[in-house]
Design a protein around this nucleic acid. Structure first.
Length: 752
DNA sequence: AATGTGTTCTTTTTT
DNA sequence: AGAACACATT
């Protein structure tokens, strides 16, 4: 047992060995909480006489789950580790639902998980069904409201209707949910919500899990939402052994429904809990840790947890201003090469982090043009490719033929003479018969076999006396549908008779997709390569029985996250958003785009809570660095195609001057001739001063006719003013430069 | 049905 | 500036 406790500090040891009751571990960045968590699990099994299958551990990502498993394999035996329930809330819920959802009567166990684009498609269909203006109502914002409601356990009948938008969203919500049920499909939120309902309404099911899981462990507790909190509570209600780890300062997912107050709620709901503070940071140098602490300290809503490190001072933090985003990327690349040469630091030890994905493009192009190795950490990107989505749509349809979204996606891909008109006819006909489009196709197939009694050959049914149920297809369209139906039936029958990779091959061959892709162009080759890559994922499930393999494969594929793509110990520099960086660490970290409007993002300016979250995100980013931290900024940057001057991020102002590298502060990277000619209104005396005069607080409330001054376009006149939420947009006429639309919170614009 | 042209939106962050 | 989408043309 000693090997489990060796090398742990007293707080970690307490977290590992306190077996009974509710425990809240406040774990600062780099404080070895993953270590505490894994050792605790091993300890429970080896010392606490708990069976592996009696433990459920919730991680934030699949990657974290995988890592926890592999760490545990060192301490336990492999079969033991296999019996542990380790995964994200979404993955665990999917598994429980697969098992028990049938009792609810609404879904069967072959339900599919709709990804973001499927969800958008459902919203669009709901809008169409409700005859709402698809131009006016955008799927994105509507889905955002629906998702928020689901995360807060709000059902359609309780949906708030305070604004017109909410009223619309409420109506869409209801139809949206109906469509999901009709398709035997769930979105990400449903995985949690339906599990919650299952546990709530079917006591025997809940009791089964409550009795099974004697220990419930949850990582990243500050990023749980309402449903997740309730699920945790329900599961732990059996034995009361609930262990949660979190850090309020690292809560960065409120926009996804996460609520850091769940940590505070926990303290109230379990008054006899034990509180453990993990305060020693094993990751970062003192310089980095102190700087990060100075940034996070500005927040009001926090639970103070003073951290310390014994790693020593280390190099100072470099704050670098480049001329524009290209120069910024060039600086990053140059510096990585320099570190490799002078400090023997491998590019694989470096990460470049940014606030928004769009920032990656310029970095990528820079790295490509210099042939520098990099890894763009965006695991979901692969699954956004057309050929991958098409292939998956076929497989999903085989798994769950009621999935009309997938059906619509591939019914005519590759082209098989089923045009838009035929599809419309099919949908209308199915609607009239109150069956799904898939069932309608099946009807056509059956009719065809018995000599088309219901089908109307030749001319379309024109007479008013024609039965409602008469199929409205001409021969050619009908035959095309019948052929498609037969092809799919063949694949569905094959499903349980062969391994998943074989089914994969058969599907691509019989559907004609293989030939469709293999068109002997370079793009075709690339698409085929991608399909082979997908097949490799399928091979991992090759040993399982056909049905089960397909279910697990589709589940895996639906729940991949961005970090999942990150392979350890690579030789390539990682490029990732600050959000995906959570939980990771790198010897060298570059945070690029440290500018007002980018980071903190302009969408957060209006709300103090959101600004605090931006700050937490800065804290998360900075504390990813072990040894070296670079904060870079572009003096001017192009947005939406036009260039604007920037101001340094307010976060830079909170870093004490004595922690900043003098050289980096003075020698700003410059190369363009114009540089210095049109400096923004800031005295050159340092970051602090510049950052405090953020443009966000600059004049708003313009009126038509105002004379204004823009730093790039010069003098102009306001010709229109409009408000969108909290943003104010003005159109300004500039002599000789035309009319520009500007966001007043963003543009360097002032009244004259 | 496949290609071309124009228009509109995009930029938070993701399971 | 680019992508995604809609519409129009062959």
């Amino acid at each position: 047992m000693d090997d489990l406790l060796a090398g742990l500090n007293p707080a970690q040891r307490e977290a590992v060995t306190t077996v009974e009751g509710p425990i809240l571990a406040l774990a600062g960045p780099g404080s070895g909480k993953t270590r505490a968590l894994t050792h605790r699990i091993a300890y429970l099994i080896r010392a606490g006489r708990v069976a592996p299958w009696q433990i459920v551990a919730v991680t934030f990502t699949n990657k974290a789950a995988r890592e926890m498993r592999s760490r545990l394999e060192v301490m336990l035996s492999e079969p033991q580790v296999n019996r542990l329930a380790v995964g994200t809330f979404h993955a665990l819920c999917a598994r429980w639902l697969r098992h028990d959802v049938a009792v609810m009567g609404q879904y069967d166990r072959n339900f599919v998980i709709f990804d973001t684009s499927d969800q958008q498609a459902v919203i669009k269909r709901a809008l169409r069904d409700l005859e709402l203006d698809e131009k006016r109502w955008k799927p994105g914002p509507i889905h955002y409201l629906i998702s928020k409601a689901k995360n807060d356990l709000v059902l359609p009948d309780k949906f708030p209707m305070r604004t017109y938008e909410e009223e619309i969203a409420g109506r869409v919500y209801e139809r949206y949910q109906q469509i999901l049920v009709e398709n035997n499909a769930m979105d990400f939120d449903d995985l949690l919500l339906i599990t919650h309902r299952l546990f709530n309404r079917y006591e025997t099911v809940l009791e089964k899990y409550q009795q099974q899981y004697r220990h419930v462990l949850v990582d990243e507790f500050q990023d749980t939402n309402m449903v997740q909190y309730e699920l945790t509570k329900m599961l732990a209600a059996g034995y009361g052994n609930i262990f949660v780890v979190g850090d309020l300062d690292q809560s960065i997912y409120s926009w996804r429904g996460a609520d850091y107050r769940n940590v505070l709620r926990f303290r109230e709901d379990y008054p006899d809990h034990k509180l453990i503070r993990l305060s020693q940071n094993y990751r970062s140098t003192e310089t980095i840790l102190t700087a990060a602490q100075h940034v996070i300290r500005q927040n009001r809503h926090r639970l103070e947890n003073e951290l310390f490190t014994e790693r020593g001072q280390g190099p100072k933090i470099c704050i670098v201003e480049a001329y524009n985003e290209w120069e910024e990327a060039k600086f990053v690349a140059d510096e990585i090469e320099r570190l490799q040469l002078e400090q023997a630091i491998s590019p694989g030890e470096v990460a470049v982090m940014y606030r928004i994905n769009a920032q990656s493009r310029i970095l990528e192009e820079t790295f490509v043009s210099r042939s520098m190795p990099y890894l763009l950490v965006r695991g979901t990107r692969f699954y956004e490719r057309k050929e991958i989505k098409d292939a998956l749509a076929y497989l999903r349809l085989i798994h769950n033929p009621e999935d009309s979204i997938s059906l619509g996606r591939i019914i005519n891909v590759p082209a098989r003479a089923i045009g838009q008109k035929t599809i419309n006819d099919l949908e209308r006909w199915a609607f009239e018969l109150s069956i799904t489009p898939w069932q309608a196709i099946q009807q056509l197939v059956t009719d065809d076999e018995v000599g088309q009694p219901g089908a109307d050959d030749g001319d379309a049914p024109s007479g008013k006396l024609a039965a409602v149920a008469a199929a409205p297809f001409k021969t050619r369209a009908r035959l095309a549908l019948v052929e498609f139906g037969r092809m799919m039936n063949l694949l569905i029958n094959a499903k349980s008779k062969m391994s998943l990779p074989d089914l994969f091959d058969l599907t691509l061959a019989r559907s004609g997709y293989k030939n469709f892709v293999n068109d002997h162009t370079p793009e075709g080759d690339e698409r085929w390569e991608n399909l082979l890559e997908l097949r490799r994922v399928a091979e991992e499930f090759g040993s399982l029985e056909g049905d089960e393999a397909l279910a697990l494969f589709l589940e895996r594929v639906a729940l991949v996250s961005d970090v999942d793509a990150l392979v350890e110990e690579g030789a390539a520099t990682a490029m990732l958003t600050l959000h995906t960086a959570k939980g990771l660490e790198f010897p060298v970290v570059f945070m690029v785009g440290m500018e007002e409007g980018i980071f903190p993002h302009s969408r957060s300016f209006h709300d103090a809570e959101q600004m605090e979250e931006e700050r937490r995100l800065a804290y998360v980013g900075m504390t990813r660095a072990k040894d070296r931290l670079y904060l870079t900024r572009a003096f001017r940057r192009s947005n939406y195609g036009f260039e604007e001057l920037t101001l340094p991020s307010t976060f830079l102002a909170d870093i004490p001057a004595n922690l900043i590298d003098e050289v980096s502060r003075r020698q700003r990277v410059r190369s363009a001739v114009e540089y210095g000619v049109d400096r923004p209104v800031q005295s050159g005396s340092g970051w602090k001063q510049a950052a405090t005069s953020s443009p966000t607080t600059a004049a708003t409330g313009y009126t038509i006719g105002d004379a204004v001054y823009h730093q790039k376009f010069g003098e102009g006149t306001v010709i229109s003013v409009e408000r969108e939420g909290n943003e104010e947009y003005v159109q300004v006429a500039f002599p000789n430069q035309g009319i520009k639309k500007l966001a007043t919170s963003y543009a360097p614009l002032a009244r004259r």
